[in-house]
Design a protein around this nucleic acid. Structure first.
Lengths: 336, 336
DNA sequence: TGTGTTTCCGTAAACGTTTTCGTCAGTTCT
DNA sequence: AGAACTGACGAAAACGTTTACGGAAACACA
């Protein structure tokens, strides 16, 4: 390699390398004179501490592992940006891995990060199965989950209140005069989606309207899934005046299908999503949706993780943040 | 901590820990019998090698640093996804940092990654100034740049042929019958943008049409910049039949401005971008653009970097990939 | 049987830090 | 002046690996 080490500095300064270490770490066991002299020499020689060696002896790396299903996804990349910036402020770096929506890969990269001795792991899991599948691992490294909300399992996670959010969305459509609201894209392999559907059902019951659900049998809430579901649906006669989607991505697929069928949004059909991904704000889309507070989620997750790193044997905690309605131009008021 | 180390395994197996290391590393200096026995015990005890300790002695971390201006950006996040997956296949992990479009921060995280002893760094630089600013650093760590194309500087980089791409875009519009084409968003602090503008000028000269440029005096090609530029432009009478944008993000801003002015795309105005970010494929946008082959860029950059890590003193290399036209629905043919 | 070769494994050094412990000089107290 | 204490620093251990070196046993060959 050829970089300058503590020993090199020590030799030039005429002190032991322990003294150099002390000078830089702000130890009180050193005189001001030698401290200043040593620091000056360090700068002159361009010394930078070797994090690897430090990790070796300190038994911590100041690295956080981040596992996302796919960083190439507006929601995840936005979360990642917030996480990285905040982590760096806290003195940590991020090692990022894609699980590619694959449970085996998720386990593999988790184990890999453990071998790297990361201080903790933040993950957006592939699905509900992840909790069980990773149980043996999460016992060994402080781990915080984002987004998949497991009511009954004792895991650390931060999430948005999906049920309330979807309930508010339904109520908003109701307040605009909609009585026949199709819920599009419910999936059963994801707790998040189950909770969101609950919100829709709750609202229907409360408001006295008939629930109407179009299920997504696939494993992902993609543009494609939304498009396919809507396209098939639009082929038959339908009576709803609004579609409420389980995710923004689905809604954008619906927009495409509607466009192809000549169905205008919002004139002919109102449309809502959930997540508030950055796509949705684009003027040609302008989707009314429910916002997940991404920066707050990121900060909460990181704080929770750093806490667990400090005190690993504290009981598990959950943080549930409030979603909020984002009103744009994909819904209109109707008369009954 | 409390994880199991080589020594623990050695004690149980009744061999020296050097033997355990050899069993796992596939060294030939060990008998098949003991190898199998040791490996079995490793598995039973749940041993995973400590990458930090290995890095210490091997003098390499198998970590690649990735510095992007903002991972929360469709182009960057797509690149990051490709880079991470390919890096992992090659036995490397990615440490990701945002420079947040800030030259000082860019230097700071670069130096931080050097302290981490990453084996190499891939970066999407803030701007042309980055090359000079980082010269002292790039001399010490193998570094590959993506995207900012410096004709005259001896850096390692991979890029798309921006000039040819923009020339093709101009020619495509010409072939549809357009003769008055506005080039929107030229910036001067970015070599990429200078090269793209060159392509436009070249084509104009070759085709015998008059160039017409609307400069972007800001430092970023954001949605906002495109919107502001176009909004102001649309306030005055204009005569062009097509707008060619220096980046997709600008074009999407233009769509918004056009929408607000009641200008229909492509009926009233044809519009093209450059980059082919994932946004652009969304049906409500459906932007005709020039594609940057992101996966190929990622793989080329990684290959180039791994090469330089193996042989640090090879001369600097450049890889220029070909862009390609992506025809969607934002342009229409006109008669003259 | 003696010599050389091969196979297998243990010993120990090395990587660059942090930190405990010990030491020595100087200071304070009685 | 002697004892106790304090401040500043060096020596060395430790972190968990990889690998050069050496040695013992087994084997081959004359």
């Amino acid at each position: 390699m050829g970089f300058v080490t503590l020993k090199d500095v020590a030799k030039v300064a005429g002190v032991s390398y322990a003294t150099v270490s002390r000078a830089l770490s702000g130890s009180p066991e050193i005189s001001e004179n030698t401290r200043k002299r040593v620091i000056r020499i360090c700068e002159e020689m361009g010394y930078t501490p070797n994090s690897v060696a430090r990790s070796m002896v300190m038994k911590r790396t100041n690295i956080i592992g981040l596992i996302v299903t796919s960083i190439d996804n507006p929601f995840m990349s936005e979360m990642t940006a917030h996480l990285e910036i905040y982590a760096r402020q806290c003195g940590y770096n991020l090692m990022v891995c894609n699980s590619s929506y694959n449970l085996d890969l998720e386990k593999e990269v988790f184990s890999l990060l453990m071998g790297r001795k990361v201080d903790g792991i933040i993950m957006i899991p592939v699905g509900s199965e992840s909790y069980e599948a990773l149980r043996a691992f999460t016992a060994q490294v402080p781990t915080v989950f984002i987004g998949e909300n497991m009511i009954d399992l004792p895991e650390n996670y931060v999430s948005v209140d999906n049920t309330t959010g979807m309930q508010q969305a339904t109520e908003y459509l109701y307040s605009l005069g909609h009585r026949r609201i199709l819920y599009l894209g419910q999936r059963d392999n994801s707790m998040t989606h189950r909770l969101r559907a609950d919100g829709y059902y709750n609202a229907c019951k409360k408001l006295g309207i008939e629930p109407d659900v179009l299920r997504n049998t696939g494993s992902r809430s993609s543009f494609q899934a939304g498009y396919t579901l809507a396209k098939e649906h639009f082929d038959k006669p339908f009576s709803e005046t609004a579609i409420l989607c389980a995710a923004d991505t689905l809604a954008i697929g619906v927009i495409q299908a509607a466009y192809e069928k000549g169905i205008r949004i919002p004139q002919d059909l109102s449309l809502m999503g959930f997540d508030n991904i950055s796509f949705s704000a684009l003027p040609p889309i302008s989707l009314t949706t429910v916002n997940q507070p991404k920066q707050e989620l990121a900060v909460s997750a990181m704080d929770m993780l750093l806490n667990r790193i400090k005190r690993p044997d504290t009981p598990h905690t959950k943080t549930i943040l409030s979603p909020s309605l984002v009103i744009r131009n994909s819904c209109r008021a109707i008369e009954n």
